[in-house]
Simulated assay, not measured.
Amino acid sequence: MERTNRVKTFLETIQETEGEHFQFDESAILEALGQDKSETSSLAIKVLSIFGGFLASLAFLGFLFILGVYESEVGMIVLGALFILGALILNKTFDRLIIDTFSISIYLIGFALVIIALLNLDVNEDVVTLLVLITALGSLFVTQTYMLSFLSILGVGGCFLILIISNDQYNLIHLYLAVYALLLVYCFLNEATFFTSGKKLSKLHGPIRIGLLFSFLIGLIALGKRGLFPIDQNYIWLSSVVSFFAVLYLVKDLIKVVGVVSGNTKSLIYILSVAVLLPAVMAPAISGAILIILLSFNINYRTGLAIGIIALTYFVSQYYYDLNLTLLTKSIILFSSGVVFLLFYLFTLKMTKK
């Protein structure tokens, strides 16, 4: 009720500011608001239901293998394709939690059957990965349900990483992170573009946003743990370039939002920002986590903010653990970084009071 009243007040404020030419459908907005609240409140139930449905589907898959389905690759491909097609039809036709749960389960199992069958037929791994990637992208045009779209976006990112690993082109992880960082910035800062581009695209904004965030995060984890990706550490800074400038761009944007006009204050903000980012140039995971935090803060996306804070804590700890330095040197680095962050905090606190 309180949220509804805030929305009504906000709409009235815009109406007074813009004048009579500003038109809106209040009943449709409140109806959409109620649906959004219902989806949010049932998120935990939805996750548990999907997990339970997936376990049940695995039991069914085990039953199929007992019947000898694995002996026929063609049968597995046909059955897997029917599962994927059935999942898309169910999601397109029905909008119920139980149907959503069942369709996601058979969607994943359908992919599993097709992949296993193709690999058993000695089909090239890259071809299998590309088929999965194309199918996952195609699913986005058929259905716009939240979880299925999220899994499709996550699957696309996973396919790109598999292609990088299977072809031993590990240095392409820099390109992967750069592309996903740019996509993430565009998706976060252009919400209005999605919501004004049609009903289908507006429904995809939420799952695309969280899907891109997790795909970007997986790439950061690949670099955040030293030795996980066999790349030249001398060029690891390449993955920090896009995040570095993206963070500075966001700082510039936030300066306008806060209303800072003093040239000296702006200069100090940029100096502190660079002081925070420079030590993380050789640790792309840290600058990437900072980017996630600022993007989420900029649009008040609490889920992304929590994920970014957890990621930053982990990546800083992992970077400290992986440093091939003496304990004294590590302590000095942490102490210096801590002082910079505290200065930034005090400066921000002072600006907030003003």
Rank of each mutant, 00 (worst) to 15 (best):
T4L: 12
E12D: 13
Q15Y: 02
G19V: 00
H21E: 01
E26C: 08
G34Q: 10
D36Y: 10
D36L: 12
S41H: 08
L43N: 00
I45C: 04
K46L: 12
L48Q: 05
L48R: 01
S49E: 08
I50Q: 03
G53K: 01
G53T: 01
A56N: 02
A56Y: 10
L58H: 09
A59K: 04
L64V: 06
E71L: 13
S72Y: 12
G75D: 07
M76V: 06
M76R: 02
A81I: 13
L82C: 13
G86N: 14
A87S: 12
L88D: 11
I89L: 14
N91T: 07
T93N: 07
L97A: 08
I99A: 09
I99K: 04
S105C: 09
V114L: 11
I115R: 04
A117D: 01
A117K: 12
L118I: 08
E125G: 10
V128F: 14
L131H: 08
L137G: 01
L137F: 14
G138D: 05
V142T: 00
T143C: 09
T143G: 05
Q144T: 14
M147Y: 05
M147P: 14
L151P: 03
V156M: 11
G157H: 14
G157Y: 10
F160I: 15
I162P: 04
L172T: 15
A178W: 14
L182F: 12
Y186D: 15
F195Y: 15
S197N: 14
G198Y: 01
G198L: 09
K199V: 15
G206T: 15
P207V: 08
I210W: 09
L212W: 04
L212P: 13
L212Y: 08
L213N: 06
F216C: 07
K225Q: 07
P230A: 01
I231N: 02
D232S: 01
N234Y: 00
V241Q: 04
F245I: 13
A246M: 03
Y249V: 09
D253I: 10
L254V: 13
V260K: 09
S262E: 03
N264R: 14
N264G: 13
K266N: 06
K266H: 08
Y270Q: 05
Y270S: 05
S273K: 10
I290T: 02
L294Y: 07
L295I: 12
L295R: 00
Y301A: 02
T303R: 11
I309T: 05
V316T: 02
D322Q: 11
T329V: 09
S336G: 03
V339W: 11
L342F: 09
F347A: 05
T348I: 15
